[in-house]
């Protein structure tokens, strides 16, 4: 029961937070002036008229990072369940070695990305 209680409080906080934001925006709406002009609504590009579309296609370089991240972060979720029990009675060294093997996989992945030049920009 504690389990659900804890998260229901968290849920409550989230609701409070949303309320807070809503109230703040609502109040702001009452307090601020509304005088839109086409110039104001123009996309800002250092004072000159914008060139081309805002959603331009950009370098895809970051994609590789997100890739790396997804792989590693997901692997690391295995770390947490293990981290809490590996020192408990009956596990000990062998479990540790297993996790080192696992970390070894992560390290190989990193090494691979490094050697393949993913981390170099030029």
């Amino acid at each position: 029961m504690d389990y659900f209680h804890g998260y229901s409080v968290v849920g409550l906080v989230a609701v409070v937070g949303v309320l807070f934001v809503a109230v703040a925006f609502g109040a702001g709406r009452l307090l601020r002036p509304v005088v839109p002009t086409p110039e104001k609504l123009l996309t800002y590009e250092c004072g000159v008229d914008p060139v081309g579309e805002g959603w331009a296609h950009t370098q895809i370089r970051y994609y590789v990072y997100s890739f790396l991240y997804v792989v590693f972060a997901v692997d690391s979720i295995f770390l947490f369940p293990w981290a809490t029990v590996f020192a408990a009675k009956g596990y000990g060294g062998a479990t540790l070695v297993e996790m080192f093997v696992f970390l070894g996989f992560l390290a190989v992945g990193l090494l691979y990305a490094w050697k393949k030049g993913v981390l170099e920009w030029t």
Partner: peptide
């Protein structure tokens, strides 16, 4: 299932 096994001994 080493993870899943709740036994105290390493398989």
């Amino acid at each position: 299932s080493t993870l899943a096994a709740s036994g105290s001994v390493i398989q």
